[in-house]
């Protein structure tokens, strides 16, 4: 079901946490609300679920405005960061709870619980208590409970935050698989860009209660709307260099990147260079010195202090032989640079 937020506003007392937020999630789409801690992701999610009262704007499930509908009557499934399983009930009772509350017959509940348990692959755990499950299994139970009554939207609040790295990778693809198989409209709240990029059709990047950019993961990475978006996506993250664009594009440290091209005459600005666009033979050479090298196995991460000032990151296949302290004259792929005004707007 299509979900629309129109001028959604939320206040806590005197502080406005979300001010006039617009968001459209297409039917069957999975969208990520990505942003730093405290930007209002959970608040938005809980308002969609009906757990927070809305202070302004509309929330549409399909054509129906649910802003004043109680949480019980909204038909959303929600997975909390700590899973919020009912500790005194078995897995089957946990999953069946939404149906039991709705007064469905035990045979029907049993049938639906079994089928959803099959979907999230926990068939053999149905008689256990939550305390007897691993984190990943609890996660699956929470997902099953959220899905069992076929909700209009599935809401996931940092569902992977409590899992270790390996399980997180596994559950990432599991959640996405289940979402695609059920074709449910889903919103994933996360502050992990990898999660957002790997699981979702689109990402809505948030900053202090506003959506800064909303687009597909690849588009957001390759074409960030401003400095904030560019700095948020990418790991290792983008490096920024102060520069001045006259005829020539000249770094604040004095080195030149050649003709300024479309940036000519812009004056002082900031350049964003992703680590994969800086390295041997990638473009106009800059003199610098390696100050840090980290081995990541398949590749090495370098930090290079440019002569005259400025620091860039580079990521190169392992075995380059370059050591900390070495002088390098690596180049920058000028055509892949991002330029930002001093205020952070994309140029």
């Amino acid at each position: 079901m299509k979900l629309v937020l129109e001028r959604f506003t939320k206040r806590f007392g005197a502080t406005t946490v979300i001010d006039g937020l617009d968001l459209t999630v297409a039917d069957g789409e999975m969208i990520a609300l990505l942003g730093p801690s405290g930007c209002g992701k959970s608040t938005t999610l809980f308002a969609i679920a009906g757990l927070h009262r809305v202070d302004g704007g509309r929330i549409l499930f399909g054509a129906r405005d649910v802003a004043d509908v109680s949480a019980q009557a909204r038909n959303v499934g929600i997975v909390f960061q700590n899973y919020a399983l009912y500790p005194h009930m078995s897995v089957a009772q946990n999953i069946g709870f939404p149906l039991r509350v709705r007064g469905e017959s035990t045979t029907q509940i049993d049938r639906k619980v079994r089928s959803i348990a099959g979907l999230v692959r926990i068939d053999e755990l149905l008689d256990r208590r939550p305390a007897q499950l691993s984190g990943g299994q609890q996660q699956r139970v929470a997902l099953a409970r959220a899905l069992v009554r076929e909700p209009d939207v599935l809401l996931l609040d940092e569902p992977l935050a409590n899992l270790d790295a390996k399980l997180r990778m596994e559950m990432r693809s599991e959640i996405r698989r289940v979402q695609l198989e059920t074709g449910i409209t889903a919103i994933l709240v996360t502050h992990d860009q990898v999660e957002a990029m790997s699981m979702c059709d689109r990402i809505a990047l948030m900053k202090t209660g506003q959506i800064v950019q909303i687009s597909s993961p690849a588009e957001m990475y390759d074409n960030p709307a401003d400095r904030y978006v560019a700095s948020f996506l990418g790991n290792p993250s983008i490096a920024f260099l102060a520069a001045d664009a006259g005829e020539e594009l000249r770094l604040a440290g004095g080195q030149s990147l050649g003709p300024a091209g479309r940036l000519a005459g812009q004056g002082p600005l900031e350049l964003g260079v992703r680590p994969e666009h800086y390295g041997p033979g990638k473009g106009p050479q800059l003199q610098g010195k390696v100050v840090m090298m980290e081995t990541h196995g398949r590749e090495d991460l370098f930090e290079v202090d440019l002569d005259g000032g400025g620091r860039l990151r580079a990521i190169l296949p392992a075995g380059s032989g370059v050591r900390t302290g070495a002088s390098v004259d690596w180049g920058v792929a000028v055509e892949r640079l991002f330029a930002f005004s001093p205020k952070g707007a994309r140029l």
């Binding site: 809980f46 679920a49 009906g50 757990l51 949480a71 019980q72 009557a73 909204r74 038909n75 959303v76 499934g77 929600i78 909390f80 960061q81 700590n82 919020a84 009912y86 709870f97 939404p98 509350v101 709705r102 409970r145 009554r149």
Partner: peptide, 14 residues
Amino acid sequence: PWEIEMAGVTDGAS
């Protein structure tokens, strides 16, 4: 945990 109650409410329970 607060979430347990909220989970119950979204599950449709009064």
